[in-house]
Design a protein around this nucleic acid. Structure first.
Lengths: 199, 199
DNA sequence: TAAATAATTTAACACCGTTAAGCAAATGTA
DNA sequence: TACATTTGCTTAACGGTGTTAAATTATTTA
């Protein structure tokens, strides 16, 4: 009976519709606004229907996470294939990674746990600026012979902050990596950046 | 009337109790488990009372964020004061930052939006390993003369990932920094790590 | 002691994720 | 064709959430 096939195709279609609707809601209103009833509204069904396709809300989140990793893998692979020199390959792959993060920021968020709360944190909370002040003072002191501009100091600060915040994020989210390796990365990264300040 | 003072002191006390109870709940069950009724239970009141002290749940979250920044600023300042050489100061400050993140991980989470979801992501989702595979292949190729161990390759991978993930997180959470500066950090960081592979 | 004010709770609203029961249409069977 | 069964879908419900308004109790003031 070919009608079975048609029905299976329709089922697959609404499954995709659920995922598409979910991603659209997230893109428009953020992850915290994603609700089963809202998804149901978008696909013109009622909420319990969704449980015929996904065991729960988390399964939808997971499926979108998987989708993110598939896109990221494809982008990085394509970037790699465009070059032959390993150095160029690395550069291209990380640039692809970077571009993916901003082209699909909602997917990146759920893949790596970046929670976007308030953008103007520093404005409404002056305390948030103290670390920057403390560190950039010292950076300026080290670079005093170079007479760096404010932007240059800022670049150095963000280089520091990025590697440390990145390492921390990774270690907070997944506890697989050994502490030894992490400490090694932290130490070499910090001393590397410090020497680069005067170089 | 001194009784006014006493009442004011009591009010201040329950305000602190609310914050303490909130932080304790978050430490025990995570941010997603924090609810007004649970806080009320902990301080032995009913939920609406909390609105006499905080305008809503987000205000509590914000106050804990501020608390986090105050502790971080204190720790970094103390670390700085322990040294005179700027290089040592930087190292000590970033180490203090690092230690704070793990000593007060819940505060760090809410301060910088690190969402801890599932730790065993790679195990239940093989797709999540593709970026690592792609990149470490190339790293090994570049470092072929050094015959690096798996751990050494891993360190290099995490160095890359940390700085890029950190930069992305920062840019996703706060859009203040100029794109130019960010691109500069990204480019210098990547090329710096690449040259360090063969050095 | 009576009135006024403050402190606290109860009740309610609208939403959430999720499950169970019910209904109606399509299908299989005789 | 008539009946039984399965399927697709909805309604109703449970226990939870943040939040607000009304009711109640306790405290202070006159």
């Amino acid at each position: 009976m070919a009608s079975k096939d048609r029905i299976l195709r329709l089922k697959e279609e609404t499954r995709i519709n659920i995922l598409d609707a979910s991603l659209q809601i997230v893109k428009e209103e953020g992850w915290q606004a994603l609700s089963m009833r809202k998804i149901a509204d978008a696909i013109e069904y009622t909420a319990p229907i969704i449980y015929e396709y996904f065991s729960n809300k988390d399964a939808i989140r997971m499926e979108l996470t998987r989708k993110g990793f598939l896109i990221l893998a494809r982008d990085m692979r394509q970037a790699k294939e465009k070059h032959r020199l390993p150095g160029k390959q690395l550069e291209a792959m990380w640039l692809a990674y970077w571009n993916f993060a901003f082209a699909e920021r909602e997917l990146y968020q759920v893949m790596f746990g970046v929670d976007v709360n308030c953008c103007e944190l520093c404005e409404i909370m002056p305390e948030a600026e103290v670390p920057y002040t403390l560190v950039s003072e010292v950076i300026e002191e080290i670079m005093v012979d170079k007479k760096p501009s404010e932007d240059e100091v800022c670049v150095k600060y963000y280089t520091f902050w990025s590697v440390i915040h990145g390492l921390i994020s990774i270690n907070l989210v997944r506890r697989t990596t050994s502490d030894e390796i992490t400490r090694e990365v932290l130490k070499t990264a910090i001393s590397g950046i410090i020497t680069s300040l005067t170089a």
